[in-house]
Nucleic acid binder design. Sequence first.
DNA 1: TCAAAAATTGACTTACTTTGACCATTTAAA
DNA 2: TTTAAATGGTCAAAGTAAGTCAATTTTTGA
Lengths: 167, 167
Amino acid sequence: MRLSDAIEQFIKEMMSGEQQSGIDLKRNELAEYFHCAPSQINYVLSTRFTPDHGYVTSSQRGGGGYIRIVRIVRSDKEHMQYLLRDRIGESITAGEAQLLCLNLHERGVIGKEDAELMIAATSASALSVPLPESVKDAVRSRILRSMLLNIAQRPAGSGKWGEDYDL
Amino acid sequence: MRLSDAIEQFIKEMMSGEQQSGIDLKRNELAEYFHCAPSQINYVLSTRFTPDHGYVTSSQRGGGGYIRIVRIVRSDKEHMQYLLRDRIGESITAGEAQLLCLNLHERGVIGKEDAELMIAATSASALSVPLPESVKDAVRSRILRSMLLNIAQRPAGSGKWGEDYDL
DNA sequence: TCAAAAATTGACTTACTTTGACCATTTAAA
DNA sequence: TTTAAATGGTCAAAGTAAGTCAATTTTTGA
């Protein structure tokens, strides 16, 4: 297993052990525990604990310093509105779209198969046509938006989406 | 026996050895085992493990990288080949895509929500960008193809391959 | 026999990870 | 109020591993 994956898992286990949604950790201690460079911790944070992954981090330097990781808590409806109104916008990359879909699944908003289907629809290979990346990203944002709106409109019986979103 | 054939056979034996329908392998290790150039592995994959052959591959670069090969469920293979090669081809309109998805649902190949999600992803509004219709139809065919290939990779029953890996 | 197709190789490219040197901030001691 | 110690942050280089492409060689089929 990759070091980065091990550290990611370690942090996630720490967080699930608590009933609150965030933890503080000491960068140097964690690095020593994993026998790695302290900056490795920053690498893990920046590749696996970003807002797109559903986390926000902050830190404090100096004596008694720490790194704080907090899981973003939103209702399904709020989350959907955030994605449609603020996050997706007019353009999104394949990697970003993938993260958003996986995160939607982790939150229990959509099923695993929905997530994978959406990832497939917005993947780089799905849009591997000779167009500028900027155009692909614009197209991708529309596809993702269209799929999210579809999910949001699913009948309440089969899910939690009874209400409409006017966005 | 040709090297390519030997590698093909080796991989297929690996897959049959598992009860799962997919495996991960290390390109460099396999190349070393067969005393060949690593790119030979890519050649074998691209000539013998394509969707037409009933397989889908994915990979990860960098430290801890791998190549993943997943077999398409046997019973779906022929129909999938027909859809990908003959029905969808290189270009498809929004109306045709919609009909195709609805038909797949009626045949029981995909669920209602899958069908609607796929229709949303390939709808005219999802692709309402200033591009020639011919380009949109080409893009749409790739999106649809990507989603179908994803569905074909789903585990047939439950608790099989696909349950325990991150896409 | 020989042209076309398939197979093989290797140089170059892209992607992700790990490390370390140097920088910035905060606290605590002098 | 300086200054030193304790933290965390940044960034670029090195390391690891897969992808691409085109030149070359081998095999196949008419």
